[in-house]
């Protein structure tokens, strides 16, 4: 994590292009059939429990088992690889890119993700804090809780099988919590953003600067 952050460069980058470009890949091998066209607006899953599926992006059919893949993010279809329409593709083939407009909060999170140590989800599952960590957070707030390498910080829950998750990384405070209890987190997505205690001031500076320099919420 660097102390040297060129705020002007970072902010101008986001001001000139306040979008994320989210690539969409084939989830497994199969024959692909697109359900959207370039320029079309798409929506992520919504509803209190994310029960309303996102816009249908493509169908992939493997051994007569068709599966619809829906959008995980809001935005516009910026690029679609139409040459794959109706074709058999390998797992992981890039199929389209969605241009997602960033909000102020997301820009702050994006910048912070560049400077925080991100602790990713080991499996697609639901997560909750280990009891000791939860009680420390309740007493003092997350940003006053320091975690050590090897410490049990979370419990991963999948089919009522609870697996302790141990922190691997350098000692730090829990700055950002990216999961909600009861909501599933995909494998590899960040669960926590950890910050060395002496870097907290720098992090606060980033947040203040973005908030001050960004005019609107959108």
């Amino acid at each position: 994590m660097s102390n040297e952050i060129d705020f002007d460069e970072l902010l101008s980058k986001y001001k000139s292009d306040p979008f994320d470009y989210v690539d969409v890949f084939a989830v497994h091998t199969g024959r692909v059939s697109f359900k959207v066209v370039e320029g079309e607006e798409v929506n992520a899953a919504s509803g209190e429990w994310l029960q309303v599926p996102g816009t249908r992006l493509y169908e992939i059919n493997r051994e007569r088992n068709p599966k619809i893949i829906a959008a995980q993010t809001n935005g516009t279809v910026a690029k679609i690889y139409t040459e794959f329409d109706g074709q058999f593709v390998e797992a992981g083939e890039k199929l389209m890119t969605i241009k997602h407009p960033l909000k102020k909060k997301e820009i702050i999170e994006n910048i912070l993700k560049e400077v925080l140590l991100l602790f990713p989800a080991p499996e697609t599952a639901k997560y909750f804090f280990a009891m000791d960590i939860q009680s420390r957070i309740e007493k003092k707030g997350a940003r006053a809780v320091t975690i050590e390498p090897g410490e049990e910080i979370l419990t991963m829950s999948l089919m009522k099988r609870d697996t302790p998750v141990y922190y691997q990384g350098q000692r730090g405070v829990i700055h950002s919590i990216y999961f909600k209890q009861g909501i599933s987190v995909a494998r590899g997505e960040p669960l926590l953003g950890i910050c060395a205690p002496e870097k907290l001031t720098l992090i606060q500076k980033i947040i203040t600067r973005v908030k001050a320099d960004w005019d609107t919420d959108h």
């Binding site: 509803g47 429990w49 029960q51």
Partner: peptide, 10 residues
């Protein structure tokens, strides 16, 4: 609302 959801824990 008729929406379907699959839960793997809880």
């Amino acid at each position: 609302g008729g929406h379907e959801k699959t839960e793997y824990s809880g």
